[in-house]
Simulated scan of single mutants.
Amino acid sequence: MRFSRWLLAIALLGSMGYFFLGSRSSALWWYWYRWQPGHIAPLVMQGGDPYVRALMRTISASEANDANPYTLLYGGEHVQDLSQHPDRCIPIRRGPNQHLCTTAAGRYQFLTTTWAEKAARYHPQPPSWFWQDYSFAPEYQDQVVYRWLTDPTAWNADIPQLLREGRVQEVFALLSDTWTSLGYGIESNRITPHLEEIYQQLLAQELAASQTAQSPGRNALR
C-alpha cells in the first residue's frame, strides 16, 4: 500500500510538471522554479541598456543559477570576501575538463585571469596602488561585464544592436567561447535549451522597469 502511494505521488508530480511546462520542457519541469524570471536575481548595477541587462541576467541563469550569484564559486560554495577575486582553484568533477580545476567565481563565473584582464580595461574603480587588487564587489562584477558586452571592439560586433534586431542566438554564439553553457560552447547544461525563452522573459521585465524609471511621475518624485 505504501509503495502504491509513492507511485501515485510520483505520477501526480510528473503530471503537474507536464501541465505547467508542456511536453517540450517536461523533462525539466523541476527546474521551473529556479529559472522563472522572478527567481533570477536582479542586477545590483543600476541603469543601462535593458537589452544588455536582460542578456547579463540570462548569462547568469545558465552560469550561476543561484539566489546569491555574486558570491558563488564553481561547485556551489559561497564566499563572503569580495574585496578581490577569490582565486580558488576548485576541482572539476565532470564534463570535458574533468580532472582539471577552475577559478570560476561570481555571477558571471569569471576566471581569475579573465577578471584581471577585463577589470584592468573596464573596472570603474581601479585600485589606488599597484599592489592592490580590483574589487570583486557585486556592482563591479556587473559594470565590468556591461562595459565588456557593450564594447564593439571586444566582439567585432555591436551586441546591443544585434539584440534589438532579435538576433539572440547569434549573440549567444559570439559569447560561447567565454560562457560555454550558452549553447555553442563545450558545456551546455539543462538550462541551455531554454536560454532564448528566458532572455525574452527577462527582457520584458527589464523594458518594463526601464519605462517605469523614465515615467514623468517617477521623475517628479526625485
Rank of each mutant, 00 (worst) to 15 (best):
Q80W: 12
L73G: 03
T58G: 01
G76C: 01
G47I: 04
V52P: 08
L12A: 15
A61K: 06
M56A: 05
I59F: 06
P69E: 08
W32Y: 15
T71D: 14
Y31R: 10
N65A: 02
S25K: 14
L82Q: 09
H39V: 06
L73A: 01
S23P: 13
Y74N: 13
G22L: 01
Q36N: 13
S26Y: 13
H78E: 09
A67P: 15
H39N: 12
L21E: 12
L28D: 12
W32I: 12
G47V: 01
S62F: 08
F19A: 14
S15L: 12
S15K: 12
S62Y: 08
P37C: 01
R34F: 10
L43T: 05
A27I: 09
N65F: 05
R34V: 02
L43P: 05
G47E: 06
E77L: 15
Y31H: 13
H39W: 10
W30P: 04
S60P: 06
H39K: 07
P37T: 00
R34K: 11
A54S: 13
S60V: 04
S60W: 13
D66F: 01
M16K: 14
W32T: 11
W30E: 02
G22R: 04
F20W: 14
S26W: 11
G47P: 11
G17N: 02
